[in-house]
Design a protein around this nucleic acid. Sequence first.
DNA 1: ACCTGAACACCGTTCAAGT
DNA 2: ACCTGAACACCGTTCAAGT
Lengths: 187, 187
Amino acid sequence: MVAVKPDRRRAEQLTADEIVDTALAVLDRDGLDAVSMRRVAAELGVSPIPLYSRVGNKEALLDAMAERLAQGLVDEPGPAEPWPDYARRWCHALRARRLAFGDSRLLVRGGREAMVATTRPLIARLTADDIATDRAIDAARLLLWSVLGHVAIELGRAGSDSSEVAVEAVFADHVRYLVDGLERDLP
Amino acid sequence: MVAVKPDRRRAEQLTADEIVDTALAVLDRDGLDAVSMRRVAAELGVSPIPLYSRVGNKEALLDAMAERLAQGLVDEPGPAEPWPDYARRWCHALRARRLAFGDSRLLVRGGREAMVATTRPLIARLTADDIATDRAIDAARLLLWSVLGHVAIELGRAGSDSSEVAVEAVFADHVRYLVDGLERDLP
DNA sequence: ACCTGAACACCGTTCAAGT
DNA sequence: ACCTGAACACCGTTCAAGT
């Protein structure tokens, strides 16, 4: 913990983004339990008050962290990649990158923006094949929730289960079944 | 908060089950954030020390609460109910009863015992149709994780999303796709 | 042996007082 | 106007002292 001395100028120029940056650095270094308003403030060299005026409260800080972590998680489809192939690849990439964060508690947060950022390329790929927009949105939401849910449970049970290898296979089946179902249902 | 006065006799006869009972009562009355070692101890009329000697620490108390909440969530199959019908019914019942608890944070906990209690009737129904035990276990785990994951995300986003009605439909599709997939894969 | 009161090292949040 | 130090009301956990 590199506590800097309080600095009034620093506090007055502080932005919400800087606070989230610092909170994510604490998360990365010492885990989510170490992320507190006081700790983040100390790390920034200010009192807790500016955090309250910039981000609201701790709940809002956690939401903002979740939102940030949800950015840039998925790749774009390849030029001639059929949508079912892309959908499967999207699911596996999302799982791998979410698992890498190692804490399920932020996973379950994140509102509309996070969802839009993650599902946009998938929805775009589906509508490019003349699938109706509302059907595409429902399909993307189904896949997003399935993957995030799976990851949340996986992280929550880390180590408690016998076979780490079998989890991969269960997830692959899960994705296959969902995409097969969508392939039959989407026009 | 009905804080009773400290009572030594009470403390010496205290059991782990009583502590979990009281913690669940606090959860029910004031939500998970109100469940603290001090609060549960006060409610029981003892100091926090007996809680540490009976359940270990707060982490262990939360695990024990999760385990308790995972008991008795699913019904048994009907006498002539085909397994795909039962699997779908099992998923919908599990979702409804888990949603009723209203907090996703305990959902993601729960180890082997909780999983066994919930999946046992489903695994039994599958093996009764001559499906191999390991295949049945994998199938039950796939459905369990899918449902719990879906519910965790649903609870985490309560109110933040536009259409409450559409969620039901997305979940129903989700279940249908999974059971259809299993129906094709299981011998 | 096993409890209680008190303490330690933290929290989230908000106050009066300072610049 | 917007900060800081100090305070309030809590935490999880563990200590010495009591029965």
